[in-house]
């Protein structure tokens, strides 16, 4: 039984279709990649799963329950956590306070009777930004802020973690460490769905990859399968040199564009 099932989801902004009958599943305990060229509808799909965007049609099923109309915060309570492509850290708070706030929100009244200082420190250590603990979140580099968002999401103990371009802003060695962290999280039983442009990272850590283009899933498979797929190559690199006449182009919808929120 998959943990997440995105079932025939359509999102339209005015006359423009950002997500076009997208269909894919995320298996429990897997690291799943969602890749595709710019404007393919990846972030919009994330917004649909987390509840920031209501789909025009289709369903989102999480943990055996239809959550399509559920408000954002209740999805979080059911175990969906995320990070943002355009950072959403709490800029006026320090890095440690950011994570602490996540605990505050998640714990509710129960949090009054529990000290979270150690948990905060542990999480900052885990993602490797303990040295920034007392810096304000609007003064740290992008890569660090992305790790902060990860730590903050982890504070809510999510079953499913959606990461939107988590490695952009990290250098090579940081990305490598980040890949190991993802595997560690998956081994602990968390399920990870990530949008990522660093193909080395995606190919190394993902069990399964879904390729989104024009809002639809055009390919699924293991990293090796996806990389070898000519449709994927075409989606990423534009036309191969043999010219435009392929049959598969005719079925691609003409009206497609992602609207930036």
């Amino acid at each position: 039984m998959p943990l997440l099932h995105v079932d025939d989801v359509v999102v339209q902004f005015g006359g423009v279709t950002a997500v076009n009958h997208a269909n894919f599943e995320v298996e429990q305990g897997s690291i799943t990649g969602l890749i595709g060229p710019n404007g393919a509808g990846k972030t919009t799909t994330f917004n649909v799963v987390t509840g920031l965007q209501t789909p025009t049609s289709g369903r989102v099923v999480f943990d055996d329950k239809d959550i399509t109309r559920m408000p954002v915060h209740r999805r979080s309570r059911r175990g969906i956590g995320r990070t943002f492509q355009r950072l959403e850290a709490f800029g006026s708070l320090t890095v440690a306070e950011n994570v602490r706030t996540a605990f505050d929100i998640h714990d509710g009244f129960a949090g009054l009777f529990r000290s979270v200082q150690n948990d905060v420190d542990d999480l900052l250590d885990l993602v490797g930004i303990a040295n920034h603990a007392d810096d304000r979140a609007d003064s740290i580099p992008t890569g660090t802020a992305r790790l902060l968002e990860l730590a903050r999401a982890l504070a809510c103990d999510p079953k499913l973690l959606l990461l939107d371009e988590p490695s952009s802003g990290l250098d090579e060695s940081e990305t490598e460490a980040f890949g190991e962290l993802l595997q560690q999280l998956a081994n602990e039983g968390r399920t990870i769905l990530m949008v990522e442009h660093d193909m080395d990272l995606v190919m190394n850590v993902c069990d399964t990859i879904h390729v989104l283009d024009f809002g639809s899933v055009i390919a699924d498979g293991t990293p090796a399968q996806v990389r070898a797929n000519p449709v994927v190559q075409k989606a990423y690199l534009g036309y191969s040199d043999d010219g435009p006449a392929g049959d598969d182009t005719a079925v691609l919808p003409l009206v497609n564009e992602e609207v930036v929120l």
Binding site: N38, G39, Y239, P244, E257
Partner: peptide, 30 residues
């Protein structure tokens, strides 16, 4: 977010503009 056929048409236009002597800096992922 555009289908390849359309992209091709657009780039034909770019080529036409270039022929008239306009300097062009084009950012592209394809």
């Amino acid at each position: 977010g555009l289908a390849p056929l359309i992209v091709d048409e657009l780039y034909e236009t770019v080529a036409k503009i270039a022929e008239t002597g306009v300097s062009i800096l084009v950012v592209e992922q394809f």
